[in-house]
């Protein structure tokens, strides 16, 4: 569009063909240019911030990494050395509890929406509320679980933390399960039904199987979402600097809250551990997200 039209040849000077660009007024061109430049700059800024954050984590985190980080427990105030072993194990445990609670409920609810409820009023309402829950502030979920499981039972526990994480994971799983099941062609279900299989058998043996990779993606996405959540754990699992009790009663150490408490502490080893923890958790989550994307693109 902005390419200049062929200029009049010297042999025929009877009329001069003006270059095409001049027909687009300067003001229009300037506005167009501004939009393009700003779009490129803004995109560059977004990508730059991602690499800035990752670069910061690598620079500060790698130097803080050592074998001790994975083998020793978090140090008390003013104690030298220490690691993040209890926090890493605690985080894995809390995430696992959250996923174990959220996955069955989420898959069943998603199945209801896609297979039974479909366009009914009830299903529409569930869908709408699920979408709200998807973006609900996570700190409110922490407060909710505090009044539900911490206050009545007299103290912080890993179970409360796991439940709080499950509430955050649930809407993600519901949403992706429904979306993935809807992609399964109706003929597959009809073929199952034609063999005389009741709906529940068709769903479990035909529809779920056909949508399996997509459903796993949803579960992984939910896991990536809750693995780094801090706010809902503050009032539920809290944190501590020891190995937690096997019953998970009392504070359960976990990476995000440890990072929060150690980051702005006046002890050098705490700060170094906070950076090491940040590096571990971010790359674990980004790795999970990239893996999810990979599975999804393979599935298609």
């Amino acid at each position: 569009m902005t390419a200049a039209a062929p200029t009049a040849s010297a042999a025929a000077p009877l009329y001069v063909v003006k270059p095409f660009v001049s027909r687009v007024s300067a003001a229009r061109r300037a506005r167009d240019k501004a939009l393009k430049v700003l779009s490129v700059v803004f995109t560059g800024l977004g990508v730059f911030v991602l690499f800035w954050i990752l670069g910061m984590l690598l620079v500060k985190g790698v130097s803080a990494l050592s074998v001790d980080v994975f083998t020793k427990i978090t140090p008390g105030p003013g104690t030298a050395g220490g690691g993040l072993a209890n926090a890493i194990v605690g985080s894995i445990l809390l995430t696992a509890i959250g996923m174990l609670i959220a996955t069955p409920i989420g898959v069943l609810a998603g199945t209801y929406l896609a297979e039974y409820g479909k366009a009914s009023k009830a299903a529409d309402l569930v869908r709408f509320i699920n979408d709200i829950l998807l973006s609900a502030p996570s700190i409110l979920i922490g407060l909710f679980v505090y009044t539900l499981l911490v206050l009545p039972f007299g103290g912080y526990s890993g179970w409360a933390g796991g439940v709080a994480l499950a509430i955050i994971a649930l809407p993600v799983i519901v949403r992706t399960t429904e979306d993935m099941l809807r992609l399964v062609p109706g003929q597959l279900r009809e073929a199952g039904a034609a063999l005389g299989a009741p709906p529940s058998i068709v769903i479990r043996h035909v529809t779920w199987r056909a949508a399996r990779s997509g459903m796993i993606t949803g579960v992984l996405l939910a896991m990536a979402r809750i693995a780094g959540e801090t706010a809902p754990l503050l009032f539920t699992a809290l944190n501590n600097n020891f190995w937690f009790s096997p019953t998970l009663v009392g504070g359960v150490s976990n990476l995000p809250v440890t990072i929060y408490q150690f980051a702005s502490a006046p002890y050098d080893n705490w700060q170094a551990l906070a950076w090491a923890g940040s590096l571990i958790i971010t790359f674990a989550i980004l790795g999970l997200s990239v893996a999810t994307r990979f599975i999804l693109s393979k599935g298609n």
Partner: peptide, 28 residues
């Protein structure tokens, strides 16, 4: 019976989402 049970379970799971949001609101 298992067919009915499966439908009931998935329906309850879906309604659980509604209860959850209502529960958060009430507790606040």
């Amino acid at each position: 019976g298992s067919d009915k049970l499966f439908e009931l379970a998935s329906r309850s799971a879906a309604y659980f989402v509604l209860i959850l949001l209502a529960g958060i609101m009430i507790s606040m």
